[in-house]
Amino acid sequence: MTMEKKKTVIEVRDVSKTFYNREGDHLVVDHLNFNVYENEFVVLFGPGQCGKTTVLNLIAGLELPTGGEVVVNGEKVVGPSPSRGMVYQTTNLFMWYNVMKNVEFGPCVRGVKKAERRKKAQYYIDLVGLTGFEKHFPVKLSGGMQQRVGIARAYCNEPDIICMDEPFGHLDAQTRYLMEEEVDRISASEKRTVVFVTNNAEEAIYLADRIILLHNCPTSVHREYLVNLPRPRNYVAPEFLELREQITKDMDDTIG
């Protein structure tokens, strides 16, 4: 993948974020800079509590920077937008809606006609492998299935960018591998710009076009890695293992 030809979608320009709370000012993001290009799958990788969620919220517009700016498709981010979808760490499905109504939520609030949004939602429900579960309520689904609904819900709104915040952090290892395969497959067939957060090196290498290693808090870019392995990737290929060792070592350095 040659980057020169790529259109820049997200520009994080010298972004800082300080939380002002009772205990005092808490600088979490410190002069962060990176770009994300069209249809690129970028993984933000870093230790727990380093500020990954905060960075993602800044891109989504759920938080606003206290310094610098986030620019998406040439426009400064000033709040959330349907063009930037989110898949969250814990499932945040609407427990009062069934799978179908959850997935069609985006088109629904945009006023898309029922027949049309149903068709669209059905497509994404099928895509994440939940055919037959349209009428089920989230409580009846396993954690992995709930995250599938969350992914379908984000894709169904057809945003330019999809942010995923450790979506598989709470799943057991088995389900996690399965979901990583699914995301790999879905992002191959549904070309989108994806910013994916994880603290799992294996997951990062399996999914990413490019990995951005973040510093411990206050965070900034520590190092970047282009991952040029063929997909679907083999967890035990020598190159995979080598990169994993490198990244794990670099992450330890950011903490140490």
Partner: peptide, 9 residues
């Protein structure tokens, strides 16, 4: 949940 709804516009 309100955030989710807001990200969907």
């Amino acid at each position: 949940h309100l955030w989710v709804a807001r990200t969907f516009g």
